[in-house]
Simulated assay, not measured.
Amino acid sequence: MTPQLTGVRLRADELVGENGVVSGPLKGYHHETYVLTMPGETRIVKLREPRERILWFDRRCFRSEEALLRELHGRISRIPAVHDVEGMALQVFIEGRTLKSRPWGDRRIPEPVHGQIVDLFRELAHVTPDTLEVERSCEAKDRADDGDCDGFLERLVVFVEEQVYEKNSADFGRLFTELGLHPDAFVQLRKNVSGLTRRDFCLLHADLHRENFVLDPLNQLWSIDWELAMLGDPLYDLATHLYLMSYPAEQERRMAEDWARAVGGVRPGSVRGWADDLERILAFKRAQSVFTDVIRLSLSLRDGSNVNWVRLPSAVRKLQTIMTAAARPLGLAEIPSRSRIAAALLR
């Protein structure tokens, strides 16, 4: 039986016509993505749309990723170009391999890659709120004033509290409670992450992990997936990057120090107090992951109306590890045992 084509796939077939090529869908959680080779052209573009019934746990600040990429052309090196195809703005597909697929051990990255990531942070520091003319999707009341790092982080805490915890409480409230995740955890979180130094804001990618870096055949590093970009505290971009990359300790330290030199060389006011504040923002990232991963891991165990028993042990281990890392910022009195976590997930 031939599987029914989705709307995205049908649009892809229409765009390339009889003489083009459609590849995909590519692997990805949030989007259904196809790579299109247009007839008579060498350019390869991506067509993607959000998957149906996918939960989104990240704040979005720009209305159009493609509009942002166009604005950044010539200001940020090695980002996808945008082409108009049949009235649609599509990103050029970057050919290469992501850092996640590279065969390096102990999560260490090579020095040339390290240097290119530092260069990206340096370029981002040049893009300030007053030099970026792209339509924003967040309301003015949801934007912190330039330099107000406490206000910037508080808005992210509010987003997790309202859009992840409270919004999903009807379906996952019992699970949160059984794991010891109560509303007062956000009171404790605010106490533990407040008091940040004022830093000058700039553009943040806000999602710089191994799958969003692509090494092309010339070993040039490209950054993709800019949909979570925002304007805010540059230290948040570094903290998010360190948290998602899970560097070996020595390379994490070097990345932080090189970030401070690079960004401070562009705007000294963007690195004020960074050494004291980095752990606070990392604590927020650990806490944020608890609420999002409780939901994601629970959903990953669903196999139709049954439980995917094969995935259960790894889900339990991962959730206990994540909760242990976030115990201090969330003020958790105890971490549930693996048997308690498994029972809660199964219920």
Results as ranks from 00 to 15, higher is better:
residue 226 W to F: 15
residue 261 R to K: 13
residue 142 D to A: 13
residue 84 D to Y: 12
residue 304 G to W: 02
residue 46 K to H: 01
residue 171 D to H: 08
residue 3 P to E: 13
residue 46 K to I: 10
residue 40 G to N: 01
residue 84 D to I: 12
residue 33 T to S: 13
residue 199 R to N: 07
residue 56 W to E: 13
residue 281 I to W: 04
residue 29 Y to N: 04
residue 184 D to L: 13
residue 36 L to P: 02
residue 70 R to G: 09
residue 109 I to K: 02
residue 33 T to A: 12
residue 190 R to K: 14
residue 191 K to Q: 15
residue 224 I to R: 05
residue 291 F to Y: 15
residue 116 Q to A: 10
residue 109 I to W: 05
residue 81 A to C: 06
residue 228 L to E: 12
residue 118 V to N: 09
residue 274 W to M: 14
residue 276 D to I: 02
residue 259 W to M: 07
residue 294 V to A: 09
residue 123 E to F: 04
residue 127 V to F: 02
residue 176 F to M: 00
residue 34 Y to W: 05
residue 192 N to Y: 09
residue 203 L to A: 04
residue 312 L to T: 05
residue 43 R to E: 03
residue 95 E to C: 01
residue 222 W to S: 05
residue 31 H to S: 11
residue 58 D to A: 08
residue 189 L to T: 11
residue 213 F to D: 08
residue 153 L to S: 00
residue 99 L to T: 03
residue 181 L to M: 08
residue 278 L to G: 10
residue 185 A to F: 10
residue 88 M to P: 01
residue 256 A to N: 02
residue 76 I to G: 03
residue 163 Q to F: 06
residue 196 L to K: 03
residue 336 P to H: 03
residue 70 R to I: 05
residue 81 A to N: 10
residue 171 D to M: 09
residue 114 H to K: 08
residue 63 R to V: 10
residue 79 I to C: 08
